[in-house]
Design a protein around this nucleic acid. Structure first.
Lengths: 267, 267
DNA sequence: TGAGAAATTCCATTATGTGGAACTGTATTT
DNA sequence: AAATACAGTTCCACATAATGGAATTTCTCA
């Protein structure tokens, strides 16, 4: 017998045993562009047939995944239920909400709230310039931190140690000609963001989209994120963005003030 | 040794093994009013210490649950990410959306889209009368089918067989004086809904809130739900509701028409 | 600073998940 | 209509990974 060494997962994933594998499968289904067939998941997951079949059965049984009559798997409604509560009760988000509205009133442009998770920014809230788009497609979406305004603002308040750890793991990708595409440039940029107190995104993630962002963080910096005002490049000039910066900064400060008041100073 | 018979879970839950237990714990955390301590979860879950601790560690590791510095567990951001995609890509919802808007334009009141899952209605979308409340606390929320307009509309299009199965499992609870509180009354009411084609909710779930709802379902009725127009009792008279009924019915028909066109007639 | 509560770690035991292979059902081709 | 290929499901000997009682560490607040 020679168990040698069980092939280690490429990403630095710890061992979360059976659950981890099931969640990988769930992720595959949840983030897929369209409902997947068993075979598709089989190929993508690298799991053996029998195992995958049981995993999916259990996920379906639990309502996390739905199996349609045409044998395609799609995310289940129970996910929505879980997320709905966590969103509604998220303290970060609920504290920030009125401030985001106010910021939107002043600027007339779209306002975002995002939070750093690993190397990604997850958008927690959004106030759109156009009318009611309830749970916008953006909420819950993730974007790389290194090329978004909110992301750079968030990164800028991390300790050098944590920052180094994160930056070293970034897989840079040029979304547009102005995307920052290497660690050195990013760190330099973040130095500037630190001294300025806010970050710009000049079409670094999406062509034609710019923003100003300011960091928001809990007292112990265990929660790090940011807010931003975003607009189309043709309408929002660099001067305009710079003009909004102080307001965005004050809004961020007000949110942190409120957080401290509500959550107590320990965090 | 006498393993006798492993205590069967009270609710008709199948065996989903390790995953099922982990999901129960996740649900506990996700649906809790506020972040829970380890001990709270321990008591609520009935799991042994060591086991629960590992389960939570794994959930945290996977990002489904967050452990705050004060040793309290709260739902993790990854849930949001999963749900965001499933919501945005949900075909039922996306087909219905423009129709919901139109219905809202005509009535001026809040419009809901809900889907039946077991004995509950899960709200998939909402167009509010007042200004932008993006992902309202309602979206993703669940309410009992038997006392909501959307729920009764959905139940009314089920086969007698499926209906019987569901009704027999309902745990009736009087939310208001007018809540239907027994199976017989419910079935009678559903007969009426069937012949009328739409359902009313006259303050049966929440005092002061009424609605008219019409069923929406896929061709094979594997997906069953409904749409409704809701308003406060003081403003929305029974006559007003009845007046809206045909419009709500036509909207539901239009949604089903679109679904058939987009998903093909098989479903 | 100490007592008590809460959280975390440990580890022998065994229940549970694993995965290769066989099987069944359903399209597609000749 | 028979043959072929492909997708989905079931099975079961085996080994891994979950279990849970108890010991240990860490927090909390008199």
């Amino acid at each position: 017998m020679m168990p040698v060494e069980k092939e280690r997962r490429s990403s630095g994933r710890q061992d979360t045993g059976t659950l981890g594998k099931a969640v990988s499968v769930l992720e595959l289904v949840a983030l897929a562009e369209s409902p997947l067939r068993f075979t598709d998941i089989l190929a993508a997951s690298g799991q053996p047939r029998g195992t995958l079949h049981r995993q999916l059965s259990h996920l379906v049984e639990e309502g996390l995944v739905d199996l349609r009559p045409d044998h395609r798997y799609e995310p289940g409604l129970r996910l929505l239920r879980f997320a709905s509560n966590s969103w509604a009760r998220n303290q970060f988000r609920s504290v920030a909400e009125p401030h985001l509205r106010a910021l939107h009133e002043h600027t007339g442009e779209t306002v975002h709230l995002g939070i750093l998770r690993g190397r990604e920014i997850i958008y927690l809230d959004k106030v759109e310039s156009r009318q009611a788009v309830r749970m916008s497609s953006q909420i819950g979406n993730a974007s790389p931190a290194y090329c978004t305004g909110v992301g750079k603002a968030a990164l800028s308040v991390l300790s050098d140690e944590r920052l180094k750890e994160i930056v070293s793991g970034i897989d840079f990708h040029r979304f547009t000609p102005s995307t920052i595409a290497d660690a050195r440039t990013l760190v330099e940029e973040l130095q500037e963001v630190r001294s300025r107190g806010f970050a710009f995104d000049r079409e670094e993630h999406e062509a034609g989209i710019c923003c100003v962002a300011a960091p928001v963080f809990s007292a112990d910096r265990s929660l790090v994120g940011g807010i931003s005002t975003t607009g189309p490049a043709y309408r929002v000039t660099p001067e305009q963005l710079a003009g909004w910066a102080p307001l965005v900064g004050r809004t961020a400060a007000a949110i942190m003030e409120d957080m401290r008041a509500r959550l107590g100073p320990q965090r």
